[in-house]
Amino acid sequence: MVHETTVEQSLQLVTFLVGDHYLGIPLQGVQEINRSLLMTPVPDSSRIVSGVMNLRGEVVTVLDLKFILFGEKTEIGEDTRNIVVNVQSERVGVLVDRIVDVVNVDRDRMDDLPPNLEKSGRQFFMGVFQTKKGLLTMFEIDAAVRESEGLEV
């Protein structure tokens, strides 16, 4: 019995850095993590959209996660990665500054967001886990992708 509950409560998160924020999203929604950052810019588009990429014959929009969450533009560097997630049956890529790890967390041990958290991006954050590498914030990638559609930038 005890074993079963831990299985149910355990959650695998893909963790990464966006700026100096340590963030995680459930592994389940992640289709792949891509090194290829060959993107075609979409002229005159909102700054949330970094561009579009050719993912094995499919044109996939790549979003600037840092811009969605914190209003800053991602500088593409050595460690920048593209996490491809599936949101409402559309594949979308999000840029992160660096992939950290895949970690197991216990859903029960998620702490509430500190009330003094900055406003920006707050609506997408779900809670905080205390890990060895520091405080890991889990956020809802679906909502971030979905709602960024209408964001006026």
């Binding site: 002229p43 949330i48 044109v59 929009t61 559609e149």
Partner: peptide
């Protein structure tokens, strides 16, 4: 013709995208 994602749905000047022979995307 490949459709563009939902983030570009308001772009009336773009009808979609296509992948050219060299793998590059063209609007």
């Amino acid at each position: 013709v490949k459709p563009l994602g939902r983030h570009m749905k308001d772009r009336i000047e773009l009808a979609g995208a296509t992948i050219l022979g060299d793998g590059e995307i063209s609007m």
